[in-house]
Amino acid sequence: MKQYAKLIKQINKVTTKENIKIDELMGNHTSFKVGGPADILLTPKDVNEVQALIKICKENNVIYYLIGNGSNLLVRDGGIRGVVIKLCKINNIKVEGNKITAESGASLYNVTMAALDAGLKGIEFASGIPGSIGGAAAMNAGAYNGEMSMVLESTLVVDNNGELLNLNKDEMELSYRSSAVLKYGYTVISVTLCLEDGDKKVIKARMDDLAKKRSDKQPLEYPSAGSTFKRPEGHYASVLIQESDLKGTCVGDAQVSVKHSGFIINKKNATAKDILDLIKLVEDTVEEKFGVRLSTEVKIWGEDK
């Protein structure tokens, strides 16, 4: 850690010691439950700390990464060099009329429950997505014929100069699993949703129905990052994988789920290498059989061991 001595000294002036972890295993911070250590993991408590920490990293030419709940992330076994800023403590949710403003670390589940409590509809599709609202806005997350672009009004971000920008829906450049946040490396601070008045009983019934569908069709009992692959144009990744006879295929403790072939799961003690090798096997096999090259929806960071 000698190379970070100056950096850590500056970080200590911005945030408290309980918000700073050294050589922290990323398997403790991702839904896959795999991943080597991050040199430095920070959990700032508010937007001012986020801005200050980003500025410190930039001034010291230290690469930094932002995560929410780590639910769409695979970290390699060698871990991450540099700084990881985890936004889990920035998670307030405010309801005003038909609008909800949620800080980036708020879970999608808590945001959807706040909408239910307020009798607001439109965000039910996200109730079972195991991520944060910041990550959902960044990747225009979606499920069951809904996606963030349908309900997002604006997003407060920190730009690459450490300044706050409020991006409206058009400025967010939302497309399939992408946005201006990913394109330009912004950091989401909060998201404002515009919803519609609804009947609480109807909203709850919709959420319950989607929860049952997820439980019936998805391997929620195992660590994973949700759908591993993006939907290729004109196809469904899960169908291509299943028709390639890959359902149940294992590399080490990584497996193409027998319940839903679009999911790669950690059966017990998979390494990131197991998961990456299985991803490549799936990509190569599907391409050979159908001439379609799958691409991952899950983000892959870090170094090999």
Rank of each mutant, 00 (worst) to 15 (best):
L74S: 05
K17T: 09
K183I: 13
E303Q: 14
G27V: 01
G68C: 01
G248C: 09
W301L: 15
K259F: 00
G226Q: 08
N168V: 05
C250L: 10
V83A: 00
L167V: 09
E303P: 10
S261Y: 02
D199F: 07
N91C: 12
I40M: 05
K9D: 15
K230V: 01
V95G: 09
D208F: 04
Y65T: 09
Y4G: 01
K99G: 07
Q255T: 04
V298P: 04
W301A: 08
E221Q: 15
C88V: 11
S107T: 15
G248F: 02
K9S: 15
I56Q: 02
A5L: 15
S261G: 05
D46Y: 00
S179P: 10
T30A: 03
I123T: 12
G128R: 04
E287A: 08
N98P: 06
I265W: 01
L281S: 01
I8Q: 00
V188M: 07
K230F: 04
I203V: 13
T192P: 11
R206G: 09
E96F: 12
K299Y: 07
S215W: 13
N160F: 05
G82Y: 06
D216S: 02
L42A: 02
L41H: 07
G252M: 13
P37L: 08
L42N: 05
N140E: 03
I54Q: 08
G131P: 03
G70W: 04
V62F: 01
I129F: 02
Y4N: 08
I20K: 00
S149F: 13
D39Y: 11
L210D: 10
L116R: 15
N72Q: 13
L182E: 10
G142T: 03
K267H: 02
A141E: 07
Q10W: 03
